[in-house]
Design a protein around this nucleic acid. Sequence first.
DNA 1: AATCTTTACAACCGCAACTAA
DNA 2: TTTAGTTGCGGTTGTAAAGAT
Length: 244
Amino acid sequence: MGRSPCCEKAHTNKGAWTKEEDDRLIAYIRAHGEGCWRSLPKAAGLLRCGKSCRLRWINYLRPDLKRGNFTEEEDELIIKLHSLLGNKWSLIAGRLPGRTDNEIKNYWNTHIRRKLMNRGIDPATHRPINEPAAADVTTISFATAATKEEEEKVISGFSIKEEKSPVRECCPDLNLELRISPPYQNQSDQPLKTTSSILCFSCSLGIQNSEECSCGDGTSSSNTGYDFLGLKSGVLDYRSLEMK
DNA sequence: AATCTTTACAACCGCAACTAA
DNA sequence: TTTAGTTGCGGTTGTAAAGAT
């Protein structure tokens, strides 16, 4: 058995959207707003499934989309967010106004992955290629979050555990944990800040001039208490990681 | 000019999460 | 508490365009 399909596939168009379909969708959403995607196609006179309409609107037709090439700053922000959040494209997109999760995912797969490889960095782990697994890893664990809401709370409350050796839970082959670790850099010429400075989330992501900078002095390294991304001090505020 | 290969990205699919009855 | 319907997310695919041969 299984669940019924999300739409009547026999009577829906697939593939590229036509200008006329786009116009219909835009007109309908302008008039009625984003609402029930399930019923939207029929109401808008579109032979599309609701999911397809939603995707087309969110990824292509929404008026607030930025479009155009990614800037170098966006590149670096994506890399840093990915090192922190993994493939949580929607969360990453939430930090890049005008960009969609799909766009960022595509951009990651076509540009950034290669860019990191060229730098000798494994895009999956953000560690140097061929480097053995790290002995001490800081883990942000979502494993205890039963629901998405709880996961948000875990992010907000920053539930972190330090592992000297990874703990395998009941499903050893199913690793749902996000791991973060200090970004790769030449340790000899730029040692990590240890306990000598506090950085806000914006600064730790390298966007010191951001309005969200809350550490007072975006470029400061003179404050006290900090390490990568403000983990120890708790200065890093995941609550600013809004969902779309 | 023709063909093949690579790149970029829009769109689809399956599933998990959420919600309301 | 359960269940069915809906939404959102992430992985993957299809294909047009660009570049190489």
